[in-house]
Structure formats: structure tokens, C-alpha cells
């Protein structure tokens, strides 16, 4: 094992920016990641997730800012820094004419693994990604799910300190998604994992921390617990037997916006400062709305965004 594996902070990016012409894809992002942590980059398409990951893996030069991987500057010492990175791009980089074994051997050699350690690393990576029986198949003939697994195997074969996975579960069926999430949880042992996604439950199920990107900026950065509190605290779901007018609900103190799910169910987006729960219950009893269900709403990513972008003062 290299000595550097004792370094606690594996990724440290400061004031990272990237412009494509006049368009700013990423603006002043700070990222820090410790060993054993899984960080989820969450955001809609075009939020800057892929651009951020490309910069962290050295495939795209940042317009401004600095990146250190295991205390090695990625911009000034790219070759040394990249030894510690495993990267699965959005589209797995597979040579279709190679077999699984040939491809993974090539990936191991490209990542600087000595020849005599390749065979062992190959067996290990294949076992982890459930590829043990597919060694002789051509990559071009594999299903999407298996190609994705080979993509992940390629990213971990050299036992990197930082694994960067760009939308690892896109296009997979539910069982494959479950397998890959299990694999990610396993990978976090003595490593750091960064993954991007636009699916909120995915972040909740595998990540320790989350950074939500919107239009190239970090709009939310906290632990999963924090996201959960944020999430639950900001929207209530209520059901009424004799539902009132939407306007009546919106008029309650602390309710910012009301969304009707169906005839009886409503989602109330609340003001963080004023909890409308008491007012709602009192009013319901007074007016005979027949409140029979009240609880935190499981908001979708869009709701989180609406909240976050609402809160953001105009910058």
C-alpha cells in the first residue's frame, strides 16, 4: 500500500470554476472529502455535475481554482495525482472489440499497476463487480448493465483512494441498481466516493453527504441527516375529508404555497420561520375540514430545488 493512503482528506477543491465561452458551467465550487465518505452531487441536467467531475479527474482543466487529490496538486502534478483516482464517466469508456479481461488488464496497466499485480487485481475487481463469469465476453456484446459494471471495475481495479462515478445507475434495471448501490457502500471502506445523480432517493440511500448543484453553484451542502431535516421540515402533506379551497389553505400563516395532489390531498410548502401545523389543525377543527392525515411530505428533488432557489437571495 502506498504511504499516502494514510492521508485523511482525499479531495480538496477550492473556488473551482469552469467557463465554456461566455457560459459559466461551474461557479466557485468548494469540495472537501475525507476517507470513508460518500459524497453525492445532486442536481438537474445541466447543473454542472459532469463538468465538476471532469475537473476533479483531470480530464477537463478548470478555468480557475485549485484541486488537490491526496495532497497532490492535480493541475501541477497531474500524473502523480491521477494515480489516486478512478473515474467512471457518464458514458462508460469501453473498447468494444476487447474482451472483459483484456480491457480490464489494459485499464490496470494504464493506471500504472505493475504487470505481476495485474492478475490479482483483475480477479478482485471482477469479483467485486459480479463479472467473474464474463471474462471472455466481448464488451460490445454485453448488456448495458454489465457494461456499466465493467465501467466501475475499470475505475476501481487499481485500488484508488478516490472513486468518481458519474451517474452510475442510469439506464439500469432495479435489481442492477440495488447491486451497484451495495457495491458503492462497500467501496467507501478506506476510500472516498463521489457520485452524481439526479435521483434524490439514490443520494439518501448511499451517501453520507450531499452537495446540491443548481446552475453551476452549490445551493445546499450538508450531511444526509441535514438534507432529511431540510426536506421534511419544509413541506407538509395533509389530507381532508371535506377539503377546503386551496386559497383557504394558502391563507394560513406560514404556508407559502399549496399544491393539490388530488381532491383530498395537499402538499403545503411552509415558511422555515413559521410552522403552520398548529394553525392548520385549529382551523380544520373550526371549519370542519375533516383533517385525517398530516405528516412531513416526501418531497421530490424539484421541490427541494424550488425551496433552495426561493431561499437564495438574488446573487
Amino acid at each position: 500500500m502506498p504511504i499516502e493512503s494514510s492521508v485523511a482528506t482525499t479531495v480538496s477543491a477550492r473556488q473551482l470554476s469552469r467557463h465554456f465561452g461566455a457560459h459559466a458551467a461551474v461557479r466557485n465550487i468548494d469540495l472537501t472529502l475525507r476517507r470513508g465518505e460518500v459524497l453525492g452531487l445532486l442536481g438537474p441536467n445541466g447543473a454542472g455535475k459532469t463538468t465538476t467531475m471532469q475537473m476533479l479527474t483531470g480530464t477537463l482543466a478548470p478555468s480557475a481554482g485549485s484541486i488537490c487529490i491526496c495532497d497532490i496538486d492535480l493541475v501541477n502534478h497531474p500524473v502523480e495525482a491521477k494515480r489516486h483516482i478512478g473515474y467512471l464517466p457518464e458514458h462508460p469508456p469501453l473498447y468494444r472489440e476487447l474482451t472483459v479481461d483484456e480491457f480490464l488488464r489494459l485499464a490496470a496497466r494504464l493506471h500504472g499497476l505493475p504487470r505481476k499485480r495485474v492478475t490479482q487485481a483483475l480477479a478482485c475487481a471482477k469479483a467485486r463487480c459480479g463479472l467473474s463469469d464474463t471474462g471472455r465476453r466481448l464488451l460490445g456484446s454485453l448488456s448495458k448493465g454489465y457494461q456499466q459494471r465493467v465501467g466501475i471495475a475499470q475505475a476501481i481495479i487499481h485500488d484508488p483512494d478516490v472513486v468518481v462515478l458519474d451517474e452510475p445507475t442510469v439506464g439500469l434495471d432495479p435489481i442492477q441498481i440495488r447491486d451497484i448501490r451495495a457495491l458503492i457502500r462497500e467501496l467507501r471502506e478506506n476510500r472516498s466516493v463521489i457520485l452524481s445523480t439526479h435521483i434524490l432517493p439514490e443520494v439518501e440511500s448511499v451517501c453520507d453527504r450531499v452537495e446540491i448543484l443548481h446552475q453551476g453553484r452549490v445551493v445546499f451542502s450538508d450531511t444526509i441527516g441535514g438534507l432529511d431535516r431540510f426536506n421534511r421540515g419544509l413541506a407538509l402533506q395533509a389530507a381532508f375529508r371535506n377539503p377546503p379551497q386551496v386559497e383557504a389553505l394558502a391563507a394560513l400563516t406560514g404556508v407559502m404555497r399549496v399544491e393539490a395532489l388530488d381532491e383530498q390531498q395537499f402538499v403545503l410548502h411552509r415558511d422555515p420561520q413559521h410552522d403552520p401545523t398548529d394553525a392548520l389543525v385549529t382551523r380544520s377543527v373550526q371549519a370542519g375540514w375533516g383533517l385525517y392525515q398530516l405528516g412531513p411530505a416526501h418531497s421530490r428533488l424539484e421541490d427541494v430545488f424550488v425551496q433552495l432557489t426561493h431561499e437564495e437571495p438574488a446573487a
Partner: peptide, 14 residues
């Protein structure tokens, strides 16, 4: 075209 360039670009080679 096959978007395999990132494999080489992210590997520790110049």
C-alpha cells in the same frame, strides 16, 4: 466518437 478518451485522460499518463 466512442467517448473512450476519458479513460486515457484520467489515467496517470501524460
Amino acid at each position: 466518437r466512442n467517448r473512450t478518451m476519458p479513460l486515457l485522460m484520467s489515467a496517470p499518463i501524460s
